[in-house]
Design a protein around this nucleic acid. Sequence first.
DNA 1: TCAGCTATTCGGTGTTGCTAGGTAGAGGTA
DNA 2: TACCTCTACCTAGCAACACCGAATAGCTGA
Lengths: 109, 109
Amino acid sequence: MGKLVTEMLKGTLEGIVLAILSGRPAYGYEITAQLRDQGFSDIAEGTIYALLVRVEQRGLVDVQKVPSEKGPPRKVYSLNDQGREYLEEFWRTWSFLAGRLEQLREGGK
Amino acid sequence: MGKLVTEMLKGTLEGIVLAILSGRPAYGYEITAQLRDQGFSDIAEGTIYALLVRVEQRGLVDVQKVPSEKGPPRKVYSLNDQGREYLEEFWRTWSFLAGRLEQLREGGK
DNA sequence: TCAGCTATTCGGTGTTGCTAGGTAGAGGTA
DNA sequence: TACCTCTACCTAGCAACACCGAATAGCTGA
């Protein structure tokens, strides 16, 4: 996709990644691949790693280093309680925004 | 609301404003007030004006200066054909993103 | 005259995703 | 050995965007 998605991802990508982690723990490389499979075709790897560092520093996730058979050790992230709380807040905010936009879309027809 | 909304608005606020303009022409001050009424309580005025300048420079809107009875002349913006096309693209992108997030939300339960 | 509302503009800041590299481990091939 | 490929992570510099704070300007009513 294009620049539109890029701008929209600002603020939502974080929630997306946390939502993925709420399902099960995962590591950066894996998350990137998963997102690409799901249609976010041009997500940059660096973006995900930087994002994971940020959420870790904010204490939303726990990290565990796990050796890989195929390369350098993986940093496996898992959502902790604080992260789960934050994710709920994210969903509330998202619902608000999505509601407004839905309304605007209806009105515009 | 908080920082979450601020970050989410990046990329979507533009579409929101264009969607408002697709209903009828409007000027900056009016748009700001309307957004605040609709729940975007802490939208900064400066943000809207800057956004309007951007979309004007990209040729998505036409501008007309109209005298006001209550203050300085208003700059009334109206969506043109190019803007209408762009707005459709915006909705497509939004739908994609909203779909992905909806799916994630379901899965996370 | 001065406060208050309307209406627009601008400079500086922080956050965020992208670009474009680099580092490093393990396996396969010539 | 030398080289390539895949896995896996990291980093510096950049552009876009929303916010903050302040300034400017026109009009009205106390």
